[in-house]
Simulated scan of single mutants.
Amino acid sequence: MSLIRTTRFTADAADADLVLERRGQLIAAIRAQYGGPTETRLIRVDERTWVDMWRWESPEILSAALAGAPHLPEAAVAFAVACDVTAEQGELVAEDGWIR
Score class of each variant (00 low, 15 high):
Met1Trp: 00
Ser2Thr: 03
Leu3Asp: 01
Leu3Arg: 12
Leu3Thr: 04
Arg5Glu: 01
Arg5Ser: 04
Thr6Phe: 08
Thr7Val: 15
Arg8Ile: 10
Phe9Leu: 07
Phe9Asn: 05
Phe9Arg: 03
Thr10Met: 09
Ala11Ser: 14
Ala11Glu: 05
Asp12Glu: 13
Asp15Val: 00
Asp15Met: 00
Ala16Met: 00
Ala16Glu: 14
Ala16Asn: 12
Ala16Ile: 08
Asp17Gly: 08
Leu18Cys: 06
Leu18Lys: 15
Val19His: 14
Val19Pro: 12
Leu20Cys: 06
Glu21His: 13
Arg22Ile: 11
Arg22Glu: 06
Arg23Asp: 13
Gly24Asp: 05
Gly24Asn: 15
Ile27Trp: 04
Ile27Lys: 06
Ala28Arg: 15
Ala28Ile: 04
Ala29Phe: 08
Ala29Cys: 05
Ala29His: 04
Ile30Arg: 09
Ala32Lys: 05
Ala32Gly: 10
Gln33Ile: 02
Gln33Pro: 03
Tyr34Pro: 01
Tyr34Arg: 02
Tyr34Gln: 04
Gly35Leu: 04
Gly36Met: 08
Gly36His: 06
Pro37Phe: 04
Pro37His: 04
Pro37Gln: 08
Thr38Cys: 02
Glu39Pro: 02
Glu39Ser: 07
Arg41Met: 10
Arg41Tyr: 07
Leu42Gln: 14
Ile43Ala: 14
Ile43Phe: 15
Ile43Pro: 04
Arg44Gln: 15
Val45Gln: 01
Val45Asn: 00
Glu47Lys: 12
Arg48Pro: 00
Thr49Trp: 12
Trp50Leu: 12
Trp50Phe: 15
Val51Lys: 15
Asp52Tyr: 14
Met53Trp: 14
Arg55Met: 05
Trp56Asp: 02
Pro59Gln: 09
Pro59Tyr: 03
Glu60Tyr: 01
Glu60Leu: 09
Glu60Arg: 09
Leu62Asp: 01
Leu62Thr: 01
Ser63Cys: 03
Ala64Ile: 00
Ala65Val: 13
Ala65Leu: 12
Leu66Trp: 05
Leu66Pro: 00
Leu66Thr: 05
Ala67Trp: 07
Ala67Ile: 10
Ala69Cys: 08
Pro70Val: 09
Pro73Asp: 13
Pro73Ala: 11
Glu74His: 07
Ala76Leu: 11
Ala76Glu: 12
Val77Met: 09
Val77Lys: 15
Ala78Ile: 02
Ala78His: 08
Ala78Pro: 03
Ala80Met: 08
Ala80Ile: 06
Val81Lys: 04
Ala82Gln: 14
Ala82Lys: 10
Cys83Trp: 05
Val85Arg: 06
Ala87Asn: 10
Glu88Ile: 05
Gln89Arg: 12
Gly90Arg: 06
Glu91Val: 03
Ala94Gln: 07
Ala94Val: 11
Ala94Pro: 03
Asp96Cys: 07
Asp96Ile: 12
Asp96Gln: 12
Gly97Leu: 07
Gly97Cys: 04
Trp98Gly: 09
Trp98Arg: 11
Ile99Cys: 06
Arg100Phe: 07
Arg100Pro: 08
